[in-house]
């Protein structure tokens, strides 16, 4: 099963290598990885999407905790949380009719058109992985030139 784990780490050089190395050395899977600073400049947040059975996930959590520069590890899958991912999708649009259809799809999925040339459109779409996949599936028949995805980020929902 897929797990979204957020890892707070010291903002030191090499920390990402330490975390990534841990996954590769022990044969754990990384499906997506995102790293960004937090409001505290000394701390970074790594969000990693991984998969494995209960025993493997428990080991991953423990192994991450064992890294000296890791401050906190949370398996967000265990609790109510929000997930988001952003994709930039460049499609090729030759005829006018196709360009109209592309704009219509963008509207349905609340994607923004962030760049346009006579032959291409670039969409920016944000949402959970399911939504991103749906947009990609719809745009595919027109001819996708390039897709860039951020990897997933996630945050816990607070109780009301």
């Amino acid at each position: 099963m897929e797990h979204v784990i957020s890892v707070l780490v010291e903002n030191n050089p090499g920390v990402l290598a330490r975390v990534a190395g841990l996954f590769s050395a022990r044969g754990y899977n990384i499906e997506s990885l995102s790293v960004a600073p937090t409001p505290d400049a000394t701390i970074s947040m790594i969000t990693v999407v991984t998969s494995g059975d209960e025993i493997i996930i428990e080991q991953i959590m423990k192994q991450l905790n064992k890294v000296i520069e890791v401050l906190k590890v949370v398996d967000l899958t265990e609790e109510d949380h929000l997930e988001r991912e952003t994709a930039l999708i460049k499609i090729v649009t030759k005829q006018g009719q196709q360009r109209d259809e592309a704009i219509r799809i963008a509207g349905i999925f609340r994607a923004n058109i962030v760049d346009s040339t006579p032959q291409t459109y670039t969409f920016e779409v944000s949402g959970d992985s399911g939504k991103i996949q749906a947009v990609i599936d719809r745009l595919k028949p027109m001819g996708i030139k390039e897709i860039v995805r951020t990897g997933r980020i996630a945050i816990a929902r607070d109780a009301l």
Binding site: P13, G14, A17, R18, G21, A25, I68
Partner: peptide, 14 residues
């Protein structure tokens, strides 16, 4: 040195 020793040390620092 840091890269080479990373998986075989408890911790390493440059």
């Amino acid at each position: 040195n840091i890269g080479i020793s990373r998986p075989c040390t408890k911790h390493n620092v440059l």
